[in-house]
Design a protein around this nucleic acid. Structure first.
Lengths: 337, 337
DNA sequence: GAAAACAGTCGAAGCGCTTCGACAGCCTAT
DNA sequence: ATAGGCTGTCGAAGCGCTTCGACTGTTTTC
């Protein structure tokens, strides 16, 4: 293992000079810098992470807490995680992967041990038990998701309320009056995950404003669950002509069921999905959808964190505006017969 | 930030004693241990990770390199990553998330800087350029996946050859003679990802042994790609009655297309999928499938790594045996008319 | 009953780096 | 000329921990 001292000796300078070449915190003559850089290259030197962390009180690591469960939006989570890792690297940081499993203890451990300089939390619940800890520590953090009380926190999220409203507006504009909302699994609502409730709120209040009827039903993914949910919906509101689907794994089953029942999409029924664009494009009917900007969220979260680490950042809530792409699954409501 | 020295003072012992209480490397009297533990609790002490890494030459971090691309098996990757993180925590280690983006440089950086004690590599190609580096370093590593040459390496993977063979046997046993294999996207084969080729080999050699015809076609995910692929297959081999599908995102489109063409599953056509059980259960027809033991792979990889770190491990290749679950998508071949 | 073994504790060295203050040499303004 | 200010470099302290050797009692062993 090559050390700073060896590099210094090889280059004929002192250790501190090498350190300053590396950090750029003091000016170094061009010739010395060249010599040192050459020695580093020749010897294949890599600074020891532990020593650096100890001396500088900075680990250059950010922690990312991902949900343990895999009952929803797995590809989105993955995409965010990868965007976080990539962006962090671009800022000279590495990413420590924590699962939600440990809960608040993980926050204590990481902040207490100086393992990471900052953290990003995903899958934030409306009243998350990790929040008091984050407020109490002076370690910077960013949430991906929006809790009920954002005081003293920085959050990045899609504007789910606007997302719900947007879906509804689109259907309203096409003349649909009775809308069914296929939600996430009941468990998601039970643990008060912000995005699900916010979407619903946005949807409902816009429905009220526009005078539409919106019927919400949570739904586990998969074919059987969707079949049961659909038949209940059509029993209850036979006039339903529009669907908003938030649960990715209910989309394809819904399309299959409608097809099977002889209801054509988009002629008889319109479907708007809330899902990553990739899913929308790959479905058996190209779906009109509101995308989930996973990469953007990951990137923005890291950039906010870096700003905070540089002392620039401020606490703020960033809500990304949703965008609806019209594809082949939505069309004018059939004329009322 | 509470330090070891403060704990020592609070407990009225020396710093080294506290250290030995923590590590258990020397015997400590019960009363001293109790007092120290109490002080730790009261002061809320967490050992500083950097200092520990520096002094002990062990970071208690393992690096996990995940593929940057998200063109296949995303949920599987995620599940593996989570299993790795969970298992590592159970062994007192944290996980550093690296993306494939940096390539071999990441290996150099991590081993060189002592950031991690060991690493796990996913998405290994048959002739991966990271392998020489792994062989050259004395840092333990485990691959999830199987390269062409495994000398000096430890690998954990599903036995893809046996997986392919198993699918074929099942269909053969049911009397199918003409089998179509829906593979991964062409790009996956082009970069020589081991699992895709091995599956195919297993499948083909068993087909030869049993005297079946197997026609392999790579396929991008999604409805349109699957439609094109299917029509080519049925043109070329109209007698096809069995399908083996390896690309998750082609399964549902295939089922939809067959249904649409009036071919019943499993009466006219049998489908065997290679996918996680969850996907198989959620499909519109409950799929006969060979599962992908993602959690098991992640867990085993970490456990091997821990064994190596303790000096127990050996280089070896662990191939997990595949298991086929019969569900509703496969049945006897229709009698030849 | 003396020698050897062991349990329990401490002090000090050292891990590899960053960073502060010091200083030598040089340039600019008075 | 001389004070003051740069620029470039160095030495040394110190970050918080682990671990080695040393030391003091207490047991065990023959």
């Amino acid at each position: 293992m090559v050390t700073l001292a060896e590099v210094a000796q090889h280059a004929g300078v002192s250790a501190s000079t090498v350190s300053y070449v590396l950090s750029g915190k003091r000016s170094i003559s061009a010739s010395t810098r060249r010599r040192v850089e050459e020695s580093i290259r020749v010897l294949g030197y890599h600074p020891n992470a532990g020593a650096r962390a100890l001396a500088s009180n900075r680990s250059n690591i950010i922690a990312l807490m991902v949900p343990l469960r895999t009952d929803m939006y797995v590809p989105v989570m993955m995409e965010i995680a990868i965007a976080v890792a990539t962006t962090a690297r671009a800022h000279g940081h590495d990413v420590l992967l924590l699962t939600g499993e440990e809960g608040p203890d993980a926050v204590r451990r990481v902040t207490g041990s100086g393992l990471a300089d900052a953290m990003i939390l995903m899958d934030v619940e409306l009243d998350d038990e990790r929040l008091p800890l984050l407020r109490a520590t002076d370690q910077p953090s960013v949430l991906i998701g929006l809790p009920a009380d954002t005081t003293g926190l920085t959050c990045v999220d899609l504007d789910w309320g606007a997302t719900g409203a947007l879906c509804l507006e689109h259907l309203a504009m096409l003349g649909h009056r009775d809308i069914a909302v296929i939600g996430e699994a009941p468990a998601v609502y039970e643990r008060h995950t912000g995005f699900a409730e916010r979407t619903l709120d946005g949807l409902r209040s816009r429905a009220r404003e526009l005078g539409l009827r919106a019927l919400h039903r949570p739904c586990e993914g998969g074919y059987d669950a969707m079949a049961a949910t659909l038949s209940r919906i059509l029993d209850e509101r036979p006039a339903t002509t529009g669907f908003v689907v938030q649960n990715e794994s209910a989309v394809e089953p819904l399309l299959a069921l409608l097809r099977q029942q002889g209801r054509a999409v988009p002629e008889d029924m319109s479907v708007v999905a809330i899902c990553p664009d990739q899913v929308a494009v790959q479905a058996s009917v190209r779906l009109t959808s509101v995308g989930i900007p996973a990469q953007e969220m990951g990137r923005r979260a890291v950039e906010h964190l870096m700003a905070k680490l540089d002392g620039r950042g401020t606490d703020e809530v960033v809500l990304l505006p949703p965008g609806l792409t019209v594809r082949a699954s939505s069309g004018p409501a059939p004329s009322r017969s």
